[in-house]
Amino acid sequence: MEIVSYIFLIIGGLFFLLGGLGVLRMPDTFNRIQAGTKATTLGVFSTLIGVAFANPDWIAKVIVIIVFVAISNPIGSSAIAKAIYNSKNVPGNLVIDELKERGEDNDNDVV
């Protein structure tokens, strides 16, 4: 039981490391957000599952936390991406940009 929990914790840590490395190495904002979001989501899942194996009493709480993280993490990164797009700091390396065709975006509800 302990060993399984350690394995999950190590895998989680490894994904966090990869996420951090991705944020450092990717060349522009959107790709950085992508690396960050994916790696941290699976990192959190894996770490929490490791915690659940180490202490089986907490399994219910772990499930609730995983559900909340799975919902809120992608929403957060989408909100950040939308704010970046609306702030006109779009990186210049896009091959295709179909969001531009939509015209001026005048809703200011992002922040």
Binding site: F15, A35, K38, A39, L42, L94, V95, E98, K100
Partner: peptide, 26 residues
């Protein structure tokens, strides 16, 4: 798919020159 996505990120991050062809798609 989430595990696949992470392996994909790992592959990109660890490769010497990051393979990129980014774009925004409808």
């Amino acid at each position: 798919k989430l595990v696949l996505a992470n392996l994909d990120v790992a592959r990109r991050v660890l490769s010497f020159k990051i393979p990129l062809n980014p774009g925004i798609v409808k």
